[in-house]
Design a protein around this nucleic acid. Sequence first.
DNA 1: AGTCCTTTGAAGTGT
DNA 2: ACACTTCAAAGGACT
Length: 433
Amino acid sequence: MPQLSSGGGDDLGANDEMIAFKDEGEQEEKIQENAFTERDLADLKSSLVNESEINQSPNAAAVRRGQQGEQRGFPEKHRVHHDGVSKHQDGGMYKTPAYPGYPFLMLPDPYLPNSSVSPSSNKVSVVQQSHGMHPLTSLLPYSNEHFSPSPPHLPTDMSQKTGVHRHQSQDLSGYYSLPPGGVGQITPSMGWQSQPVYPALSPCGFRQPYSSNLSSAASYSRFPHSLMLGPSGMHPTGIPHPAIVPPTGKQEHDQYDRGMYVKPHMEAKREKEPKKPVIKKPLNAFMLYMKEMRAKVIAECTLKESAAINQILGRRWHALTREEQAKYYELARKERQLHMQLYPTWSARDNYGKKKRRKREKLQDSNTDPGSPKKCRARFGLNQQTDWCGPCRCVPNIHPYPLRSIALLSSNKQTNLIFPPIEPSVHQCITFL
DNA sequence: AGTCCTTTGAAGTGT
DNA sequence: ACACTTCAAAGGACT
């Protein structure tokens, strides 16, 4: 578990994940890091590409599943090598001098005048812009100064669920401060999409370390100041809140992510049918890391399949040092904190089980479908007139027993697959078992 | 259009 | 308390 020296006290991650780092020893990692060469990078690239090619084979899914355990136990030699490489690639972002603040490097070129970020910075910036990663997410400032003790809780007049009309307390504004003048001065160019109005960058191309005086700091987070949100989680400029997704879901959210969200006809539609917006879960540390590094991996490995990319990112995540991971854990903690402040009544339960519920409902529908028992018996090669089918609990028409008796039968481990035909008299006994 | 894949971590549910 | 499940992001592939 990465523990910050600042001692936030908040749990930052899973214990078991971090034990490995203790075992490996950072000393060795540093040595590996120093020993890194261009050739190593090339090797890694090719290995990653090869791996992805394997994954993309027709049996890729099965292969991947089979490899899960194997990947967990990534050969030590390979892993050390890989770790060294990864640290060079990923760690570079943290090791750039003169940037004590949150060290995201996934900045588009316009913000990297010196291009001193990484060997692949050119590629990354191009891909990233087309990829639509929200720049402000990556720019959420990180520094020890920023991660001061938790702010006092907000006043209770916050809106319920949606975060609408929520007021910003002074304390919070000190934490995620508003630009002077607040909402009134927020122009569309200050929205999440527009890049040109990023705060002043340091001469080396990075943002200045976060300070509480920094204006519009809230806009760097995925959960900016609530006053920036209009009804239904919309920014007054018409830009939606990143954590709030219209009920229609992914597509519009993606459009937002691509910086082309605003579509007049869509908005008109939304006005006609005001639905409860979906407030998404705050991103965890790994999600934040993925969001930041995805474009880089895509650029390096010329991969597009997210599943393969995520595998690589998973390995790189493990290859990060505790300190490097801790930054993301801390960032995630801040995200959660801000999310909590913006949506105090929100719970992960709000979005919990929706997918599965739909699935279950579908399944139930198919099971209660009159044609279903017939299909099921056919599937198991049973007699349509006389045989029971345990797995789906469907009964032949000649034995229209109540569901309770069938459930009891199914709970019998001896005969939980296929039940023999049962006479109605037997049914009575079963029911009262 | 909806779901799956794939990753980790947080938070939920179930036992 | 613990184990298990779901969701968060991403986008190609598939149904």
